[in-house]
Design a protein around this nucleic acid. Structure first.
Length: 659
RNA sequence: GCCGAGGUAGCCUAGCUGGUCGGGGCGUCGGACUCAUAAUCCGAAGGUCCCGGGUUCGAAUCCCGGCCUCGGCACCA
């Protein structure tokens, strides 16, 4: 029994096309494996714990469970509609997962891989509780911006260690927080370094993007992980009033979901997860969670004495209309609101995702490309072939009994081999290209055999041609089924065979005789108007996102007056070693010369900025960047993330105030 | 700066253990056909395989040096 899993969707937001980049290929993979006669268990589930869920639930005034229920339902619906069929779709907040997580944590403790350590954490006296990272708000010690407990998200983007943040406040009640010491638990990841190197170098299979990534991390720096959090919502850490970190109980979902799936099917889950060193487990994930799956997860399994995964398959990133996927900037395609509500056949999107490019590479989603791929490939080449054959055969014969040309059987065999080879390398584009090649072959065969002429001269010969063509149709239905299950299962039914129990080899067995009903058109065309509409929706969303960026909050003049902006003259400039962006400047701001660090080195050379007049925010709190102190901030225009310096219209004395 | 992944015709891409390797698809142009969802089939145009060196009898493919793009880290006062 082979186990295939997908990265668990986080039950905190709706499904978008980025999710599908992983789930669709995984489903396609499983369907092909089954056509190849393999026994596969395919599982997934919702990731239900963690701070963001708690924070969002609180924001909406509902319980975390209610929030999780909503998105759990949502994802199940999306998967159902896109024909992504898991043998079991669970959730990590279910009893079975709590049980398994605690069992594994206990084993890790017993085996000496967990230790306690006192750390300083923000504590709210009023709420009478420790504040998890995202419940803390304060001042970034590096840049002075308002920051979150774990990260300076508004300012410098730095990661903050517990206790680093200044002037911490409780996000819930707004009152001042204090630091208190508390005991937390750490997982000794560092103890697994040698094991991980060996595992990654010699044992783990999968796509190179994942493996290379992980190898680099293991060799550079491994740190022990703090695996406990101060939350109510989550799996209890044994013997403490703490909850286990999400990245502990989430992957354990793979195990507990397997148990549930096995229970239902009368199988033994231990044969998968407690089956010696390496077990036949394949994880499909996105590139963003390689660290967790290739490093943290195997270490945990090893530490607890469980079997290790055999392969990690990571999909490339998704771009939307050529731009980096971004929900906040509007470059997103929502599966339900955009795609399904527009009434598109799920098979189209599945084909697009699988066929656009190889699994490891970035996938660009564009509505125009979508329309072209559907109309030119799925419909004109594949759908049209199927329909023209069935229609012609039905109209002229009704029943087909003829000899299939051996050339046709050879071609089908060749395509089948291509598919098998591609699937074994997780090259789903290659597999789908292969059945498209067969469709093209079918069109050529049909065209050159001219059955429309033959029918007038030699009905038997014509019948043979059609038998060959129907053989190709049958092969196409089987070969394309994993990618386009919705339409292909309908066609299988039309042809009178059971696709659920079919095998790739069945495509080679000659059809002796077949009775045809009036065929249906398998695929509906995508029309230009609809595509224009989708593009409009998208543009609208992007524009809105830009506006939201633009029209932040209105401030009054008093707030503006807090800013002391003056013209400064750059006297000296030099690059900062080890930094691509930073330049150290000495700037005359009137009454003094200041050292300022500016992120302009990517665009400007030191010699070209010396002598320039630029506006400087002089009363910003000093900060250290790459170890260099900066007292002030050069103002510049931001053009696609690159700075463009501003200069006064006329020569003005340094220190001139800007108002 | 470090670490990954890349740079092949208007676009997407295959090939990258060196010698039918310069392929495929979309788009474009010309023709054929009419069974079919104006679908299909045949043919054509289009490329300094990022640039510069080197190894070799021979390099898109190997080595060195650049440039550029994307992602991660660091970082954008």
């Amino acid at each position: 029994m082979k186990l295939v899993t997908c990265g668990l969707p986080y039950a905190n937001g709706k499904a978008h096309i980025g999710h599908l980049r992983t789930y669709v290929p995984a489903d396609v993979y499983v369907r092909y494996l089954r056509l190849m006669g393999q026994d596969v268990l395919f599982i997934c589930g919702s990731d239900c714990h963690g701070t963001p869920i708690v924070v969002n639930a609180e924001k909406e005034g509902i319980s975390p469970k209610e929030l999780v229920d909503r998105y759990h339902e949502h994802f199940q619906k999306i998967f159902r509609e896109l024909c992504i069929e898991f043998d079991f779709y669970g959730r990590t907040d279910a009893e079975y997962n709590h049980y398994r997580t605690q069992e594994i944590v206990k084993r890790l403790i017993e085996n000496g891989y967990v230790y306690a350590k006192e750390i300083e954490l923000a504590y709210c006296p009023k709420c009478d509780r420790f504040l998890p990272d995202r419940y803390v708000e304060g001042i970034c010690p590096y840049c002075g911006a308002i920051a979150r407990g774990d990260e300076c998200d508004q300012g410098c983007g730095r990661h903050l260690e517990p206790g680093e943040i200044k002037e911490p406040r409780c996000k819930i009640c707004g009152s001042k927080a204090e630091f208190r010491k508390q005991k937390h638990y750490f997982f000794k990841l560092t103890a697994f370094k040698d094991f991980l190197i060996d595992y990654l170098e010699n044992k783990l299979q999968g796509t190179e993007n994942a493996l290379n990534y992980a190898k680099q991390w293991v060799k550079s720096e491994l740190r022990d992980w703090c695996i406990t959090r101060n939350l109510e919502w989550g799996v209890k850490f044994p013997g403490e009033d703490l909850v286990v970190y999400v990245w502990v109980d989430a992957p354990i979902g793979y195990i507990s979901f397997t148990e549930e799936a096995c229970k239902r099917k009368g199988l033994d889950w231990k044969k998968i997860w407690l089956n010696g060193e390496i077990s036949d487990i394949t994880h499909f994930i996105g590139l963003d969670i390689v660290y967790h799956h290739c490093i943290f997860w195997p270490a945990m399994l090893k530490g607890a004495g469980y079997s290790l995964p055999k392969a990690v398959v990571a999909s490339g990133m998704v771009k939307v209309e050529g731009k980096t996927f971004s929900k906040t900037r509007g470059y997103v395609v929502w599966v339900e609101d955009d795609y399904l509500k527009a009434g598109f056949n799920p098979d189209y999107l599945r084909y697009y995702i699988v066929n656009y490019t190889s699994h490891e590479k970035d996938l660009n989603f564009s509505w125009k490309v979508f329309r072209d791929k559907v109309n030119n490939e799925i419909i004109a080449t594949l759908g049209n072939f199927i329909y023209r054959v069935l229609h012609f055969a039905w109209k002229n014969f009704g029943r087909i009994e003829g000899k299939v040309d051996p050339v046709v059987i050879d071609k089908i065999a060749e395509i089948k081999d291509k598919i098998v080879s591609a699937i074994n390398r997780w090259e789903f584009k290659e597999a789908s290209d292969a059945f498209m090649e067969l469709a093209t072959f079918g069109n050529e065969f049909f065209q050159s055999s001219k059955p429309w002429d033959l029918i007038k001269e030699d009905r038997d010969k014509c019948m043979d041609v059609l038998a060959s063509c129907i053989q190709i149709v049958k092969a196409l239905v089987i070969f394309a089924y994993p990618v386009m299950p919705k339409t292909m299962s309908k066609l299988a039914e039309f042809l009178g065979f059971d696709i659920a129990n079919a095998r790739l080899e069945d495509a080679l067995k000659p059809i002796e005789s077949i009775e045809l009903k009036k065929p249906f058109i398998p695929f509906e065309k995508v029309d230009d108007k609809k595509i224009e509409e989708m593009e409009r929706v998208m543009l609208e969303r992007i524009r809105k996102a830009e506006k939201a960026e633009f029209g932040k909050e209105l401030i009054d003049i008093k707030e503006f007056e807090k800013l002391d902006i003056r013209i400064g003259k750059i006297l000296k400039a030099e690059r900062i070693k080890g930094s691509r962006k930073l330049m150290r400047l000495e700037v005359d701001v009137g009454n003094e010369v200041r050292q300022i660090v500016a992120g302009i080195a990517e665009v400007y050379k030191p010699e070209e900025v010396v002598g320039k007049l630029v506006p400087v925010l002089v009363n910003i709190k000093p900060a250290k960047l790459m170890g260099v102190e900066s007292k002030g901030m050069i103002l510049a225009a931001d053009v696609n993330g690159k700075p463009v310096l501003l200069h006064p219209d006329k020569e003005v004395p340094p220190g001139s105030k800007i108002k």
